[in-house]
């Protein structure tokens, strides 16, 4: 059961994956349109990825804690 719970917790990765995918796609779009704004775009992209990734990290943490601390 604990392993199942950990597995369900890691499902948060779906959201982060979709979010980062959309963000990167839009960033590629923006760079294609305005190559001179690449520096600014990559900074915003990095910030967005960091915030989107946080959910996946919370899922991972909960998964790890489930396995190690629920015995």
């Amino acid at each position: 059961m604990i392993a199942l719970g950990a597995g369900i917790a890691v499902f948060t990765g779906i959201g982060a994956g979709v979010g980062i995918g959309i963000a990167t796609g839009k960033a590629a779009d923006a760079v294609a349109r305005q190559p001179e704004a690449e520096g600014k775009i990559s900074k915003v992209l990095l910030l967005g990825c960091a915030l989107a990734e946080a959910t996946a990290i919370y899922g991972l943490l909960i998964g790890i804690m489930c396995i190690f601390f629920l015995k």
Partner: peptide, 16 residues
């Protein structure tokens, strides 16, 4: 909380 958890989770995840 989010600053702390983001850094900790990323490094711990990579380490594991």
């Amino acid at each position: 909380l989010s600053l702390c958890m983001r850094l900790f989770g990323n490094i711990l995840g990579a380490f594991v």
